[in-house]
Simulated scan of single mutants.
Amino acid sequence: MLELQPYSVEQSLRSHRAITLLTQGFSNLFVAKTAISMLRYRGADIVAILDDQVDETNAAELFQVSGEFGQIPVAKEIPKDSDALYIGIAPPGGKLPSEWRPVVLNAIRMKMDIVSGLHDFLSADPEFVALAEANDVQLIDVRQNQITEIATGQPFRPDCLRILSVGQDCSVGKMVATLEVNRGLVERGFDSQFLASGQTGIMITGTGVPVDCVAADFANGAVEDLVRRNDQHDFVLVEGQGSISHPAFSAVTLGLLHGCRPDGMIFCYEAGRQQIKGLNDLDLPSIASQMNALETMANLLNESRFIGVAVNTRMLTPDDAKAEVARIEQEFGLPACDVYRDGADKLVDACIALKQDKGIAQ
């Protein structure tokens, strides 16, 4: 069995109940997506957002977080009751901002665990390591792993339906769509499990596979093993990464596709996006061409089809968003919705219908 982290580390991620999210100087919707998702899905465990460079006073003002967790304060210094400092950003290149070193060192002196999803591992930094050992705290790099096994291609449990979110591009809402569909299935009484494949999902759930930091030969095997360890569930909802057409990240997308061998896929896209993220001189291929390519590659290993579309309409007015969802449903003959605005019921229904189509008992 593959292990992402020692058992004690996974338990630590789940046990943190007074988290400070560090976004200082990077508190915007593009870079601080880890913090925003943590607020959405682990808001009850968060005591503050740390950023002394903004005027906003709470999560609602800073990140437009709605509901009860919108009142989580923006702090100028680390609250004394924090038990962990979580790095709340996902910057291009995955490096720790140099100006954050004093903040992290201070948190360690305050005997707080430090949790990071960056590619720049804190546990490889001698100064951080020495101070953490002296203060008996953990440096948890959720992307760090020692996975060295290849995929076998052996069947999963037949009654476990596997659903994978795939996308038009990076940062279009694959994780949120997958979490919301999983939540909808659980609320309807199904035994369903979300499987994290990226740093934010792992921080939210406490476990998963950081597939973009697994050696290429072992990515398929890591995903396959993650699914196999969870195929006792009726549904597994696998978080997608990257895009099959992104020049930088397509290998990660294919590793997930062939590692989990999905029965069904949910296509995620952002309405109005024209260029590939981070490569603004390259236009995105059409949705139809991407879906065709994904279905072709998925069916090399397992019968698979698209069952729905998750539309990210954040740049549209409510009326335009409604029209966009209707347009995509008409064009592809698939149920579509914006899980933020509309909820995920249409996609939950599609998962249940696929299970019935395959003759799998409820």
Rank of each mutant, 00 (worst) to 15 (best):
A18N: 15
I108P: 09
D81M: 09
E99V: 02
H233V: 04
F30I: 10
G167D: 00
V103L: 14
R228H: 04
L185W: 10
D52Y: 14
R157Q: 12
A222P: 04
L179E: 00
I244A: 09
T205A: 14
F26L: 04
P155N: 12
L39T: 11
A321C: 07
G221I: 02
E77P: 07
E224H: 08
A310Y: 14
A321S: 14
G343H: 05
V9D: 06
G206M: 01
Q356L: 06
K95V: 02
I287G: 12
T148Q: 13
S250F: 15
K111C: 00
I204P: 03
G278M: 02
L257C: 04
C268I: 10
Q199A: 14
H258M: 11
G264I: 04
Q11T: 11
T23G: 07
F190M: 06
A361R: 05
K322P: 01
E295V: 15
D125V: 09
G208Q: 02
L2C: 08
Y86I: 12
D51N: 03
T23L: 03
I19W: 12
F156W: 02
D263I: 03
T205H: 11
R143F: 01
A75Y: 14
V211E: 02
R273K: 11
R261H: 08
Y41W: 13
D357I: 09
S289G: 08
T313L: 01
G43F: 05
Q24N: 15
Q275P: 00
V47K: 13
C351G: 01
E324K: 15
E56C: 00
I87T: 06
W100V: 15
G43R: 06
I140W: 05
S192I: 03
M291V: 05
A353V: 02
V137G: 04
H233M: 06
R101V: 11
V176A: 00
G278F: 03
I204V: 15
